[in-house]
Amino acid sequence: MHGEYKVPGGKLVVVDFQVVDGAIRDFRLSGDFFLEPDETLEAMNAAVEGMSPSGTIEAYARSVTEHLPEGAVLLGITPEAVGVAIRRAMTGAAQWRDYDWQIIRGEALPPAMHLALDEVLTTEVGEGRRGPTLRIWEWANPAIIIGSFQSLKNEVDAEQAAAEGVEVVRRISGGGAMFVEPASAITYSLYVPGELVRGMSFADSYAFLDEWVLEGLKGLGIDAEYKPLNDITSPAGKIGGAAQKRLGSGAVLHHVTMSYDMDADKMTRVLRIGREKLSDKGTKSAQKRVDPLRSQTGLERAEIIDRLVATFQQRHGGTADAVRAEELAAAQQLVETKFLTPEWLTRVP
C-alpha cells in the first residue's frame, strides 16, 4: 500500500506498508518534513505497526501522538497527516494531477442561476459526464446567500434588503450568510470527484481543496492562512469563507467567496449580525470583520483572479471550458422549480 498527502501549508507525507492478516505491517513513513530528534521517525513507524488498516484518522493520530519521544518537534507534518495518508492508501484516493481539469470563466449571472449551476455541475462530475472543474463566478446583481440550514428571518432583514435592491437566495451547502455585490467579491466553485478527498475528514478536505488559493494569495503579498473550519484569513483580518456539499453522485461541491471591496455598512444593514457574534471576534463594528483584498494588494479584481487561476494551472493543470447548453438548461429548470421558490427559500423560516 502506498499513500501520499500534502499537508496544507506543510510538507509531503508518504506512507508505505503491507496488510498482513488484517494488520498493518512493515510501515514506513517518509517525506520532506522535519523531525527532531532523529528517533522520532522510528517512534512514529512503531506507533502504526500492527494497527488495523480500517482504523480512523483520529485513531492513527492518537497512537502517533502517544508514541512521540518527549520533546519531539514536528515541522511540516502532524499526527493527523499520517492518518490521512494511511486512509488515502487504503481507499485508493486520487491526486490532483490524475484529472484533466476544466476552468470556466463565464458571464455575469443572477444569484439563483449560480446556485443551480453548482448543483448541476457537481452532479455532472459525479456521474462522469464532466471532468473536475474550477468555475469563477461573476455576479449580475447584489445578493445575500444564506446557508442551507440557516433561519431566513434570523439572518436577513428582508425589508431592508428589498429597499437596497438586494436579492436573497439559499444555497445547498451549509455555513453562514454572505453578502455580495458585483465586482466586490471573488467567488469560485470546485466540482471534484469524491476520490480526491477520500479518507479525509471534512476539516482536512477544506484546507486541502483551498491550498492552491492560499499559495496564490501569498504570491500577491498576502500572508494568508486557513483558520478551521472554513475561514481564509490574514493578519489584517478575515478574507473569505468556504462551504461544502457532498452529493449522492459521489462528487463534492466546494465553493469560496472572498471579499475584494466590501461595503460593510450596507452588509450590516441587510444582514442581522448579532452583537454576540461581533464581540466574539473582538470587534466593535462589522467594518473589521471582512478585510477586502483590494486594500491588501492594490490590484484590480480581474488581475487578482487572473493570478489565482494561473496558480491553479501551475499546480494542477487546467484548460478553458464553458458551461454546456444542456447544463444551462438543467440549471434554469432548477432555478424555476427550486431556487426561486418560496418553499426552498423559507425551508428554515
Rank of each mutant, 00 (worst) to 15 (best):
D280W: 13
S189L: 00
V197T: 12
E195S: 14
P132G: 15
G216Y: 00
V19S: 09
I145Q: 06
R97V: 14
D118N: 15
A108W: 07
R28E: 15
S279E: 15
F208A: 01
I222A: 04
P342Q: 05
D98S: 10
D204W: 09
A112G: 04
R25C: 04
S201D: 13
L115I: 05
P193I: 03
F208R: 01
R88F: 10
R294N: 14
S259K: 13
G131Y: 04
E336D: 14
A264V: 11
I172H: 08
P193R: 05
V213Q: 00
A242V: 05
P69S: 05
P132A: 07
S54K: 10
S234M: 12
F202Q: 14
I136D: 03
T257E: 03
A264R: 08
A329E: 10
H2W: 09
T257F: 02
K288M: 14
G241Y: 02
K266D: 07
E327M: 02
A59S: 12
T133H: 06
G317A: 00
L220K: 00
I232V: 11
T122A: 11
Y191P: 11
V166D: 08
G131T: 12
G318D: 06
G31Q: 00
G22T: 08
V323Y: 01
M1G: 13
T346P: 00
T297H: 07
E124V: 10
G282T: 01
H255M: 05
A23F: 08
S184L: 03
L220F: 06
A236Y: 07
Q244P: 05
I222Q: 02
E70F: 05
E336Q: 12
M267V: 09
L345F: 14
K338F: 08
R307I: 08
M113L: 13
D21S: 14
N45F: 02
N230R: 00
P142K: 03
T341V: 09
G31S: 01
M267W: 05
K266A: 13
E336F: 03
A93M: 06
P110A: 09
A116T: 06
L35Y: 00
T123H: 13
L12Y: 05
G240P: 04
E66D: 10
Y260P: 04
V168P: 02
I136M: 08
Q160K: 14
E138K: 15
V252L: 12
A158E: 15
L117F: 04
A302Y: 09
A158D: 11
M258F: 13
V213R: 03
S173L: 00
M267H: 07
M200H: 12
A108F: 11
G216N: 02
S259F: 15
I304Y: 07
E58S: 12
E124K: 08
A112T: 04
L220I: 04
R294D: 11
Q287R: 15
E80G: 12
K238E: 00
A322I: 11
D261N: 11
V15H: 09
S52F: 11
V309M: 06
K281Y: 01
A93L: 06
T56N: 09
S295K: 13
A93C: 11
G55T: 02
K153C: 07
D16K: 12
L35A: 03
K266Q: 12
Q332K: 03
V197P: 02
Q160G: 11
P228N: 14
Q287M: 10
R171A: 01
V180L: 08
Y206C: 03
A72H: 06
P79K: 02
T78M: 03
P110M: 07
S30I: 04
A112R: 01
D118I: 00
L35Q: 00
T268P: 09
T91N: 13
G50D: 03
G165I: 05
